[in-house]
Design a protein around this nucleic acid. Sequence first.
DNA 1: GATTGATTCCATCAAACGTTTGAAACGTTA
DNA 2: TAACGTTTCAAACGTTTGATGGAATCAATC
Lengths: 205, 205
Amino acid sequence: MASSLEKAKQNPDSMKAKILTAARKIFGEYGFHGTTTRMIAKAVDIDISTLYYHWGEKGDLYEAVIMDVTEGMRQKLIEVEKIIKGRPLSERIRIALDEMADYLFENPEISNLTLFRYFTKTRHGSILDFKVPEYISDIAYSMGLAEDRKNVPTDAKMKVLSIMNAIHNFVSGENFFRPMMKMDRDEYIKAAKDTLKFFNLTAFT
Amino acid sequence: MASSLEKAKQNPDSMKAKILTAARKIFGEYGFHGTTTRMIAKAVDIDISTLYYHWGEKGDLYEAVIMDVTEGMRQKLIEVEKIIKGRPLSERIRIALDEMADYLFENPEISNLTLFRYFTKTRHGSILDFKVPEYISDIAYSMGLAEDRKNVPTDAKMKVLSIMNAIHNFVSGENFFRPMMKMDRDEYIKAAKDTLKFFNLTAFT
DNA sequence: GATTGATTCCATCAAACGTTTGAAACGTTA
DNA sequence: TAACGTTTCAAACGTTTGATGGAATCAATC
């Protein structure tokens, strides 16, 4: 399964990769039940059976999308950790928030899919409850909330969870919140970042 | 539509009210597309057509549920505002967070439906994007973030949005976060409240 | 006890759904 | 050029979905 995903991503022009990209976007917009296999096929401009040939059932494709998204987040977090290493705490927070917000605003499906996964139950009680974000502990450690990377206190995890969710909320809720604030996109992103910094900088420094 | 909802709620034993209650719970668990009219009918132990007789199409029932939930939130917020009136800010925040968290942990469908509405697109491009929470401004005013209830600065609205979403996240995400924290329900609720206070008390006092 | 209006269920519909089958078209190797 | 695995598609499968029409039931009124 994992190797199948990697193979697909090796060549982004391959049909399997194109389907994955489209599926990621559409699942991110409409959720699992809101997405039909035909919607994905249409986006890639292929027949449905082609989709099924490459990925098998809908649930498997969704699973692959989740893994793809999770992996992307993991990579981004490693990247951010490299940038902030050694800097003072307030600067670390500021940069990390900016970087993560930019990344997620550019890839809003990530936030959508993450939140969807948190909150949605699936009818078929299937196995979509895998892969709990293990990077929560890493972030806590990198923020200086724990001395041991392998042994992070729960209150620290709760704080990290809260921060991550706050970013996701602003990203995923853009279509809902922005009109109500009467802002354009750039204004909204800036306002979101400022709000995030307001809570986190005062809380941690 | 509104009067129809009120009538239904007047007598909680009426079929219309029973359907609404069940629908609220199930829509809250599975989302709009994840819920079938048959699931709701089965929960009330009635035939499908009885459901359609009382509420008409699925979208109308969903709309009624959203209005019901929104109205409940509005009432709770009025109640909370009465309790905290006149007290010092830090106490106001503490009480308001406790009250809202308790209310939402008791009625998690509210959080689920609220977040669902923020993030989900509907296939049929229908009209589920009504009723933006107007109480955001009221909360901001009640928190002392604005002098004029009718003219609340956007950064204050963003802060309120952030707080409300943070509560919703902990409530809706319980099934996902709690196992990963290895807490029982009461521990988790306490941890969630503490985390909320950690961010908000330091930020506003 | 017949009449009426509101309510409930049974049976059913067409459309949309996830999924599969079988056969073409393709480029590659023998 | 023949044989091969890979990729694509048209067509269809059985099921589930949202929704309806009509007959049966019930409660109140006359």
